[in-house]
Design a protein around this nucleic acid. Structure first.
Lengths: 342, 342
DNA sequence: ATTATTAACGAAAACGTTTTCGATTTGAAC
DNA sequence: GTTCAAATCGAAAACGTTTTCGTTAATAAT
């Protein structure tokens, strides 16, 4: 029941291990006859190379690590799917770990992956991450690192992102274009770049349209849950009765808000318009359906792996690694939570 | 920049590799003095054992494989989270692959994982899987295999499941208890055990309550999407105007159905009651909130890994492996899509 | 017949670790 | 001074593969 080795094939065929190994890998200095012999026997014995030995010898495992803040999340699971599908095509496997939005855990997970000698790492940062030495550790080991979605600009590695600021600008502009004059924003936590950028896009759109930017209209969602959407919508109705539009950092929160507005008898979009972010599949299912920004998760995962793969190849060939920042397109998806432009 | 090895430590300390290795692993035949010396140097040089060499030597990688039908799915991502969290505690990493509900792909993924020499495999079967030789391949290699959620009873391995039949029975009984007389069922695909069992639970509840089982009231959802829920709800309203309750295989479909019923002006639960399955977090957010069966995904993942770990340990110690089938508890979560019992 | 060239193969080192087993030293016991 | 036991160490094999380099045999060229 013991697995077949090169040695066994060599012995039964009366040739050397070297020749067997070369025959299986189609080296030119093995005759066609022995190649056929070896391959046939390998086939019938169902020979599979011992991955551990290959890893040790070649110093690579064809395995990459992936760290995300939270697995149970539609956007991230889409990204994971994109990564895995692409990795599989290139013969790479993916080890997934999550940081639970904790810097400490993120650091630990990186150490774990490095100790397991993955060939490269993909990461989307935790909200809590403000120090980046753990990321530089990866780079110091000359292992490729690609960040996606929640990135740190300062780290010297490839990145796959969207233009959050532009997308948020467009979302807000759409509210303005459809007649909104006083627009609130439910933003994400303070640290991550993308919630900052979405906030800045919102702010810039207001200013560009000569609308007064009122900081009291900005609510900070730390958990980004459905319940937070309900909570801040309720609060908003009390604190700012004159609101006619809300741009919300993410669809899940937006759907919570819509539920609360519906419950309060507010007419959407006639009285208050709502725009979300991410185009979660439920956004088209609720009533009213949610206008939102489409954020291509699957595509982002695909691109992140593709870039990592390029760098893996480059390192292997001893070529210079060209770091890239890839920006994916987003699109405003107009639905029924905003008015139509007249 | 080359990583530190045992050899280097041995040379700088003027001792043998053997002693260094033993010192680091606290073998009793190394003096306290040299142990301290070795450990100190290992610390300052930041020595990390080469995982590839350890794998080769110990014949294990502390890595397990996980195959699921679909990553972008709330239930499965919960299971994944449970698995990873538990695996991490025991020092195991998890490689995730998906079968996309395809038998062929599932088979390929297993081969991939076996060729990478994972220590064990966790799997939830694809809907399309009807042949089980690929699973027996794993067992033949004496690697532990644990199936969860979508299992095949015939395969000789441990399993983590819920009592789908009982849960479905309870769901249907609740509809009956709250006054429903003519109950439809949106079931899952034909092959997987759990959709069969849920159907059987539904049927048994009807029969036990002397309600006529009408096969035309059973609709088969092959995709299990929101859209299928809408579609069959619409169809049901045309084909069976006398329906007063629906038991639906999964929440996502149920929410689609509710949306369609709402749209058609049907009052839920007064005219038609709805019960779902899985307790997706959105089920409490929609209007009316959905009565459903709570299916503990995170717990299931945790248990599946725990069982796998037990078997890994047993194999390592040469002990007999005790296969187990673990059944997790489910609960009926009563919400507003069903009437209250008078 | 000699030399150069090519084709085909294999010995051996290497990757870095773990573990068995034997060797040496030390001190104690008699 | 011999014997024995315990303490401490290291040589070496092993895990299974890849790859360099050398060797041999066969063929072609002179």
């Amino acid at each position: 029941m013991e697995p077949v080795t090169l040695k066994q094939i060599a012995e039964t065929l009366g040739i050397s291990i070297t020749t067997v190994s070369k025959a299986l890998k189609d080296y030119p200095d093995v005759s066609k006859k022995t190649k056929a012999l070896v391959k046939d026997l390998a086939q019938t014995l169902n020979y599979k190379p011992n991955a551990f030995a290959v890893n040790l010898r070649t110093r690579e495992s064809k395995t990459i690590g992936l760290i995300i803040p939270e697995i149970v999340h539609h956007f991230f699971s889409s990204v994971i799917k994109g990564i895995i599908s692409q990795a599989e095509k290139k013969g790479y496997l993916v080890i997934i770990l999550q940081s639970n939005e904790s810097y400490k855990l993120e650091k630990k997970q990186i150490e774990l992956l490095l100790s397991k000698q993955v060939d490269g790492i993909l990461i989307s940062l935790a909200n809590a991450t403000a120090d980046f030495n753990h990321l530089n550790d990866i780079i110091a080991q000359e292992k490729p690192l690609v960040m996606f979605d929640k990135i740190a600009k300062i780290v010297n590695c490839s990145k796959v992102i969207i233009d959050d600021r532009k997308a948020a600008y467009n979302a807000t502009q759409h509210l303005i274009d459809t007649g909104c004059k006083r627009i609130a924003h439910f933003r994400g936590p303070l640290l991550p770049q993308n919630s900052i950028d979405r906030f800045l896009g919102y702010k810039k759109a207001l200013i560009d349209n000569n609308i007064f930017y009122d900081p009291s209209l900005v609510y900070i969602c730390n958990d980004m849950t459905f319940q937070e959407g309900e909570k801040f919508a309720k609060q908003l109705l009390i604190e700012h009765k004159d609101i006619d539009g809300i741009f919300i950092n993410t669809d899940l929160v937006a759907i919570g808000a819509i539920k609360e507005l519906n419950k309060s008898g507010i007419k959407i979009p006639e009285e208050i318009s709502v725009v979300g972010f991410s185009n979660w599949f439920m956004s088209s299912a609720i009533t009213p359906s949610l206008t939102t920004i489409d954020q291509p998760g699957f595509e982002m995962g695909k691109m992140a792996f593709k870039q990592l793969y390029k760098e893996l190849k480059a390192i292997k060939k001893g070529k210079e690694v060209k770091l890239k920042t890839i920006e994916l397109e987003t699109a405003l998806v107009k639905r029924n939570s905003t008015k139509t432009i007249i």
